Computed example of a mutant assay.
Amino acid sequence: MKIKEIIVVEGKDDTTAIHNALEADTIETNGSAISAECIERIRHAQEVRGVIVFTDPDYPGRRIRAIIEQHIPAVKHAFLPKKKTIAKNGKSLGIEHAKADDIRSALENVYSSDETNFQSQITLDDLIDARLLSHTSAKKRRERLGELLNIGSTNGKQLVKRLNMFQITAQQFGAAIALINQEEEHA
């Protein structure tokens, strides 16, 4: 499998994991303190070939996404849930610990963050009704929703923005919530 876009990752170990899974070029941010030079390389890559941001599912990874999104809003995003990025020793997480099949799957399910002409039909009330906010199992349900929709894990405040960013329709949202409810009933 060869990826046309350039994949933005955090470091060398992530690049190695990507190369072990498929054929692709990467740009490494070298952590969450992204330099102006790195932002310009990413901007140029977006103009020439397109960019997929593929960072760790933790605070620094979310911070990197936000910084890139602020400067280059039309990038694509790929996500892996935390449970697929945990090291064998259980002490760290990151793309570098993911299985090649999981990396390929995440990169097959990228989302564009271009929000032009998309108006979400999902409201804050929908999130409350779906027990994604103000509920004892809200965090667990948001994490599962992020897995099912391939949009990553978010906190309650970020969820509406993420659903809009990735143009999740009410139908997609409803189907994912129905599956989560079914899983909980059978657990």
Rank of each mutant, 00 (worst) to 15 (best):
E47D: 03
A138S: 03
A187T: 02
I52N: 04
L93E: 10
V51D: 00
E184V: 07
K76H: 08
D125Q: 09
I128S: 07
G90P: 04
R41L: 02
E23D: 11
T26M: 05
A74G: 07
I18G: 02
R62L: 11
G152E: 09
D129Y: 04
I39T: 03
K91H: 09
L159C: 15
E96A: 12
N20M: 15
N164L: 14
E69Y: 07
S120I: 13
N150S: 09
A98M: 14
I122V: 02
P60F: 11
T123A: 06
N181H: 13
L127S: 06
S134Q: 11
T29A: 04
V8N: 06
K12H: 12
K84R: 08
I3R: 08
L179C: 07
I180A: 15
I95E: 05
Y59K: 04
P57E: 01
M1Y: 08
N117W: 09
K2V: 00
K83V: 13
L133G: 02
T16H: 07
I68G: 08
T26D: 03
K83T: 07
A33V: 01
K12N: 08
L148A: 02
K139S: 12
Q70S: 11
R62F: 11
G146Q: 05
I34M: 10
E183A: 11
T116E: 03
C38Y: 00
I128Q: 01
G174D: 15
L145R: 10
E108W: 03
R162G: 11
K76V: 02
S134K: 14
Y111F: 11
I103Y: 06
K2W: 01
K140H: 15
D25N: 13
N181F: 13
T29I: 07
A87K: 15
E37V: 11
E23I: 10
L93W: 03
P73R: 14
A17C: 13
T16D: 14
G11Q: 05
T29G: 02
I86W: 09
A175L: 12
L149P: 07
R49E: 08
S32G: 09
A176H: 06
L133T: 11
A100E: 08
L159M: 13
G174K: 15
G31Q: 10
E69D: 04
K140Q: 10
L127V: 04
D56V: 01
K139R: 14
D13R: 14
E147P: 04
L107S: 12
R142Q: 12
E183N: 10
A33E: 08
I168R: 08
I39P: 00
D25F: 10
A178K: 07
T29E: 00
P81F: 06
K76W: 02
I6A: 09
E115C: 10
V9I: 12
E96I: 13
D126G: 00
K91Q: 14
D14E: 07
L127K: 07
I7S: 01
V110M: 04
A78T: 15
T26I: 04
L22W: 05
K4E: 05
D126P: 06
V51S: 04
D114I: 08
K91T: 11
E40G: 06
E69I: 00
R162I: 12
N30T: 01
K140F: 04
K139M: 06
F166H: 13
S32Y: 07
I122K: 06
H97A: 05
